[in-house]
């Protein structure tokens, strides 16, 4: 690589190519195109290169998926081995109330975290202003939560939310607001965690939306200004419609991420939290069944339900996008 790209190495690398090209040209102009001697090697290389990720996909995604389906229909333990017995596990999960409650919690969480998208839009528009000083500083600042370990983030927020000694309660106490044990109270725990979810996702959303904003032609903004549109009107009538493809992408990613939420809940609530029963997400339930109670087949059922729900929700989003996404 070093000789190929540096200035001194380039001529040596280029010469043979020129020579062969020149040879073809000497025999007859135009003939080189008809022969297309490079066509098959190109395809072969493409096939080989694509085979590598494809093999990865098969080995690490498709095969485990097949195994998960089989496991969900099986009974047994890790030591005795699993044997396919039928739909008993599915019946147990679907008849029990827990999975539905967890599903509702997960969807509520996903909906709340989706509120982070408009927030990210406004911030992206503000940061897009060229006259803003320290733009890159702010961008970095908003991106910091993304590159911070979720465990560290959760620990800090746990302290902020602490009912007895927490920062939030101290502030609220000073201004006479209501105080409570935010993540130990079943009425607030899920929402308190969702706020952290929004905060953590903000950076990624911001980057995607900022990139989308760069693609909005400045001439349109200028034309709107000439027509007498103020900044707010320009934002809603020009920027937002042109940004819809990015908004759509961010929304889809946000929902998929939310449906898999586990780490924040696991660390911020803990096993003996009185709010846990009312705040469990579907992946948390999966963890409990598969790894706490060691019922892997039941865990497989829940994992597959998560997959189906994620596919369904994403399909709905793709269907609805026709109504509001403008592809310029």
């Amino acid at each position: 690589m070093a000789t190929g790209t540096t200035g001194t190495g380039a001529p040596a690398g280029v010469t043979p190519a020129r020579r062969s090209g020149g040879a073809g040209g000497a025999i007859g102009a135009g003939r080189g195109r008809r022969d297309r001697p490079n066509r098959y090697p190109d395809n072969r290389w493409a096939a080989i290169l694509l085979a590598v990720p494809f093999a990865g996909l098969v080995i690490f995604y498709l095969w485990p998926l097949v195994r998960t389906v089989l496991l969900s229909l099986s009974e047994g333990t890790a030591f005795t081995g699993y044997s396919v017995t039928g739909f008993d596990n599915w019946q147990r999960v679907l008849d029990g109330g827990e999975v539905w409650g967890a599903l509702v919690n997960t969807l509520v969480y996903a909906a709340i975290v989706l509120l982070g998208v408009p927030i990210a839009m406004v911030l992206a528009a503000l940061l897009h202003q060229r006259e803003l000083r320290g733009r890159s500083f702010y961008r970095t600042l908003y991106f910091v939560p993304v590159v911070t370990m979720p465990v560290a983030v959760a620990m800090v927020w746990r302290y902020i939310y602490n009912g007895d000694f927490g920062l939030l309660n101290e502030v609220l106490d000073a201004v006479g607001g209501p105080t409570r044990a935010w993540v130990a109270d079943p009425d607030t725990a899920l929402y308190a965690v969702a706020v952290v979810g929004i905060w953590m996702a903000l950076g990624t959303n911001l980057i995607i939306l900022a990139a989308g904003l760069e693609a909005v032609p400045e001439s349109l903004e200028e034309a709107a200004t000439l027509d007498g549109a103020g900044p707010v009107r320009r934002f809603f009538s020009v920027t937002v419609p042109l940004l819809t493809p990015s908004i759509f992408l961010v929304s889809v990613l946000s929902v998929i991420g939310s449906l898999q939420m586990f780490d924040l809940l696991f660390i911020m609530l803990g096993r003996t939290n009185p709010a846990l029963a009312d705040s469990k997400t579907i992946v948390y339930l999966f963890y409990e069944e598969a790894f706490v109670r060691n019922d892997r087949p039941l865990g497989a059922v829940i994992a597959l339900i998560t997959l189906v729900v994620t596919l369904a929700v994403t399909a709905v989003q793709f269907r609805l996008q026709r109504r509001w996404v403008t592809y310029a």
Binding site: N162, G163, V183, A184, P274
Partner: peptide, 10 residues
């Protein structure tokens, strides 16, 4: 004793 909420937090 403090409440269960309190023990969940600390």
């Amino acid at each position: 004793s403090p409440t269960l909420e309190s023990f969940a937090d600390t």
